[in-house]
Structure formats: C-alpha cells, structure tokens
Amino acid sequence: MSLLSMKNVSYRYPINNWKSLKQVTLNIEAGVFYAVIGAGGAGKTTLCSVFRGFIPHFYHGELEGEVQLFGKNLLQYELADIAARIGYLFQNPFTQISGAKETVFEEIAYGLENLGVEPAEIRKKVEDVIALLKLEKIAESNPTELSGGQKQRVAFASVIVMDPEVIIIDEPTSQLDPQGTEEIFRIIDLMKQRGKTIILVEHKMEWIAEFADRIIVMEDGQVVMQGDTQSILSNPKVMEHGGTLPQYAEVGLKLLGEEGIHQVPITRKQGELVFSKLQKGGAE
C-alpha cells in the first residue's frame, strides 16, 4: 500500500510553455528512503512540490493526472492539513528561518504553536529535538545571526519537531561546507532510523549510496529509472540519463571482471574491500 502516489501526472508552471513533468507514475512506500537524482531541470524539485501539495495549491499552473496522499486525492486537501504530515526542507538556509521568532528555541516551537499544541507539550517536544540534533549551544541564540549550516539544522529541527510521517528534502546541502553537509546527512539518517519516509533530492552521490534505500532517476520531466540503491548506482545507464554515479562505482565499473571483483562497489566500505582484494591479488 503506497503512502503517496502519482499516476500519469503531467505539470506545466503558469509562466512556462513547456511541461516540467510528463506522465509520471510513481509509488512512495512507507518507511523507505528514496533519493531522486538527475540533471538540472529534470523535474526533481517539481516532483517534490507536487508531493507536498505546493503544486497546485501555491504554484497553480496545469496539473494533469492523479495524485494521492495517504489514500486521499491531493485536490481534496487544504494545504494547511498537509503541513503536519509531510515535512518540507529546501536548499536556502536563509529563507528557511521564519523571521517571527527571536530565539532558536522559539523558532523550533513555531510550527507546534501554529498547530495549537499546549505549551507544556511544545516545551517538551522542542527540548527533545534540541537534544536529538545537539543544538543546545545555540538554543538561545537569534536564528538570524547563525551560520548557514546552523540555520539549516534549525530548519530541520523546526520540521522534525512536528513529527511528520514523510519528509521531503530538496538539495539541503548545496549551500553548505563539507562539515555542514555531514551534519545534515547524520540528521537525515536519524530520521530514517525512526522509520520516516524520506524523499531526498541530492547530487552528492557518495552520501546517497551510504543511506538511501531506493533511487529514482529523472530526466526531462520523466522517471527513467528506479530501483534499489545497489543496482541503480552501479548501472552505467544512469550517466546516459544525465545523472552521476558515486566515485567508487565509476572506478569499480572499470575494474569489473578483474580478480574477484563481481559487484560494483558503491560505498566507501565496499570500495575499500575491493582495493584490498586487488592489492592481495597483485601481491601474488
């Protein structure tokens, strides 16, 4: 039973005269971590916007096909009802600070305040999330004075505290340095361990190889490949569709067939195993 689904969905933004999504059929199952990859303009962000209901409720435009969220048609939802069930995070840390609150603590509490949760319960939930994401040091700081990486973590906290079933994340690390990137992926992994359904758009393939369960490859508004992480990220066809593979896989593909190398490595651990095997082979 799929949690979210699209059937033959096409979409055109109001000011474009071409379609950003063409006949997309996709099922999102509960508890699975999906990574969406593909070249720029492939429709990944549009896909996220549809699943979150921003299309058509906020962006308008022409939406064809059927979209179901939690068994109900998207068009029957009020945008506000989706907020508590599907979290949404995106690239820019600066615009993800609401601007309505003076401390990180209050910023994280903001979503729950809007949902009408009782103050004592809000307090507990916010404290839990701050401990979980290790934000104690900045809990009393003004969100507008934080660094990009810190702001992004606060944004994550603000969404996670509402305990949504699904979290859609669109290129969260594009504006962050390597340390910031690692911190964000650790948070995403935490969510995966908690059984959340995750849809992540990313370009950093090494990280995706580490954590994602399934890969969706998009090109020119269509889903051209999908499957489990190991098989997709070791498949050279991904590159024909405008995507990239993890570095270990690109190297591994070239070594396929060599002594004892029957599977393309996609993660660091697998890569190290392969190299040590080769080393042993070369030593003999």
Binding site: Y88, L89, N92, A109, G116, P119
Partner: peptide
Amino acid sequence: ERVITLESRAFTTQRKKTNVTV
C-alpha cells in the same frame, strides 16, 4: 521561499495559535 517556509510551519492552519511562553 519564505512563504514556503511559513507553509511548512503550518502557518495557514485554522486552529487557534498557542504560545510556548506563558
């Protein structure tokens, strides 16, 4: 983008807003 952020913080719900500070 800020509007998207507000939407994600359930700003548009009809429920009565509470406050964590009393």
